[in-house]
Each structure stands twice: as structure tokens, then as C-alpha cells.
């Protein structure tokens, strides 16, 4: 296996001078317009594209995750849990080439006034694509830092005008054993399903991701559209979404059905509530050496100041 060292930067990864100049100009304009308060301070710049896939145009910088050390592109894209393409961490990178991500439509239905369908091209052009650097904590006690490209889920949901009856949102992955060979065996109850409470779905940290490292999502990372909820365990961030439904009442989710005592609906990162088979107090950061120490897992994966209020009167031991 080829491991790229940090100092080993290909020429394709270096931002061309004109692009760089455009970004500077954008930043100046933003600062002048008074919207750049969060962007000022140490010079921020978009993460350099990995040079592996199509770049996403018009990506806007955000202050999210500035200063976090990114996990190498190789690890982000070659160590994945995506059982639709095999249960080994290396399987998705090897097998996901069979997934066809164009054309791709997402059905939005359920308790809303304007149900309909939206194509991935309209999603890419119709919503401002932002860079969001987030920590991702897996329920298996490892973690990484990913520079996602995406936009707030709430922006998309509002277009379909949810009614007052809609208090949860349900998501569904593509079901197609031809394209997703892992679905030929009943490892999980396919298609993969996930859900969020309405206020979680509308929270500004919750995004639909279309890319990472400046480029469209690799198939193994859930192309062409996936959820990212950074304060919850990774399995909540459902991949390759084809359907989003507004529902009334808690939707059934895949891992909860599989083992309700191990995977709750909320699945908030919580160091004080163990998985029945292992502790959640600490985690490994991908890419660190064999003898490096584990890290203490922070409550809500370090996003407590932004999301703790959503759960203020709840017993998180009961609603894990």
C-alpha cells in the first residue's frame, strides 16, 4: 500500500496562482461587505484539492474546523464503513466503482406541501457549496477530520415546505444489488435507513455533503450525496441518499433495528455512555502511529456548545 507523506505534495495539489488571487479578492470583498468577521484573522484558504476527481466549482470558505489537522486523503477514502460494498474497511474503495452517480435523483416526500424530486446537478448549482472541516467519530472508537464540501440540510428541506405534522426526517440509501454488491447478502436490512429529529435536521451544523478535499465525493464516501452530522456517531451520516421523507414519529433506522441495545436513534457522541461491547471514552485518530496515545472523546464530539441545548431535558443514558 502506498502511503503519501505529508511533505509529498504533487504539483496538481498546489493551488494555481490565479485561483489563489481570486480567493484573496473574494475574501477582501467579503470583509468589505462586513460578512467576513468570522473569516478574518489568520489567512484562511480552501483546502487544496486532492487532484483525484472533478473539482466542485464555487466553493465558499467557512470558519468551521479551521486549525484542525486533516486526515490524509488516502485514509479518508480508503478506510470506510459502507457495507453496501463489503464489510472490510478496504472493500468500499475497491468495489464502489460499480455505483453510477449520474443521473441521480433524490425524492423528497412525506409530510410536506411541495413533495418532489431534485437532481444532483440542481443540488450542486442550486445551493452554495461550502467547505466544512468536521471531526467524524465512528461508533467503533476511531475518528478522522474531513474537509467536506456541502450545504446545510435545512436549506434543502425548506424548499419542500414541511408541514407542522413533520417532526422527524427519514433518509434512505439507494437499493440496487447490481450496483451495490454488498446488498446481495442480508447483512443489514437493506436499504440503509437513517433519521433525524426535525430540529437536528434543521441545525446549521447538519449538512448534505457533495464532496471532500475540494472535489466530488468518491463513491466509497457516499457519492453523490450524503448526510454529515458531526456530533453523532458516523453511522448516522447516511450515504448515497435517494430519498428524504418528512415523517411524524420516530422513524426506524437500520442499526437500531439490527441491535437496539447497541445503537440508539440519537447516537450522539457521548464518552460517558459505553457501547455494550466497548468503551466510548477514548478514540484513535486515523493516521496516527501504532504507539500513539488515544484521545479523550469530547461530549457531542466537541460540538457541545452548539448542540447541547437540543437535548437539555433528556436523559442521554436512556436516549443514547
Amino acid at each position: 500500500m502506498l502511503i503519501r507523506r505529508h511533505g509529498d505534495i504533487r504539483s496538481s495539489e498546489i493551488t494555481p496562482a490565479d485561483v489563489y488571487a481570486q480567493r484573496r479578492a473574494f475574501l477582501k470583498a467579503a470583509a468589505a461587505a462586513g460578512v467576513g468577521a468570522a473569516l478574518s484573522g489568520p489567512a484562511a484558504a480552501l483546502v487544496a484539492p486532492a487532484g483525484q476527481r472533478d473539482a466542485i466549482a464555487g466553493v465558499v470558505e467557512t470558519p468551521h474546523g479551521r486549525g484542525l489537522e486533516l486526515t490524509d486523503y488516502e485514509f479518508v477514502t480508503q478506510y470506510n464503513n459502507f457495507y453496501e460494498f463489503g464489510t472490510d474497511k478496504a472493500d468500499p474503495a475497491e468495489n464502489a466503482h460499480t455505483l453510477r452517480t449520474r443521473p441521480w435523483n433524490v425524492v423528497v416526500d412525506g409530510e410536506c406541501e411541495a413533495p418532489g424530486e431534485i437532481g444532483i446537478e440542481d443540488i450542486l448549482t442550486g445551493f452554495t457549496q461550502e467547505e466544512r472541516i468536521y471531526r467524524l467519530r465512528c461508533v467503533e472508537a476511531w475518528a478522522m477530520v474531513v474537509p467536506w464540501i456541502g450545504f446545510p440540510l435545512g436549506d434543502l428541506l425548506r424548499r419542500f415546505k414541511p408541514t407542522s405534522r413533520a417532526n422527524y426526517v427519514r433518509f434512505e440509501t439507494l437499493l440496487d444489488p447490481e450496483q451495490m454488491p454488498g446488498q446481495r447478502r442480508a447483512i443489514l436490512d437493506w436499504p440503509y435507513r437513517e433519521g433525524l429529529r426535525m430540529d437536528e435536521a434543521m441545525h446549521p451544523l447538519t449538512i448534505l455533503a457533495t464532496g471532500l478535499y475540494g472535489e466530488v465525493l468518491p463513491n466509497q464516501n457516499g457519492a453523490p450525496l450524503r448526510l454529515v452530522v458531526p456530533w453523532k456517531y458516523g453511522f448516522k451520516s447516511i450515504k448515497s441518499i435517494v430519498r428524504i421523507s418528512f415523517v411524524h414519529g420516530v422513524p426506524e433506522t437500520t442499526w437500531w433495528r439490527m441491535a437496539p441495545d447497541e445503537y440508539g436513534f440519537y447516537a450522539n457522541v457521548n464518552p460517558s455512555v459505553d457501547h455494550p461491547r466497548w468503551s466510548q471514552a477514548r478514540h484513535r485518530v486515523l493516521g496516527e502511529g501504532l504507539f500513539s496515545r488515544k484521545h479523550e472523546t469530547p461530549m457531542f464530539n466537541g460540538y457541545a456548545d452548539q448542540v447541547a441545548h437540543l437535548y437539555k431535558d433528556m436523559d442521554l443514558r436512556k436516549f443514547y
Partner: peptide, 8 residues
Amino acid sequence: DLGANPLE
């Protein structure tokens, strides 16, 4: 060269 998660 033990991959992303050497401990695992």
C-alpha cells in the same frame, strides 16, 4: 505502513 488504523 499498517494502514489508517494500525491498532486495529
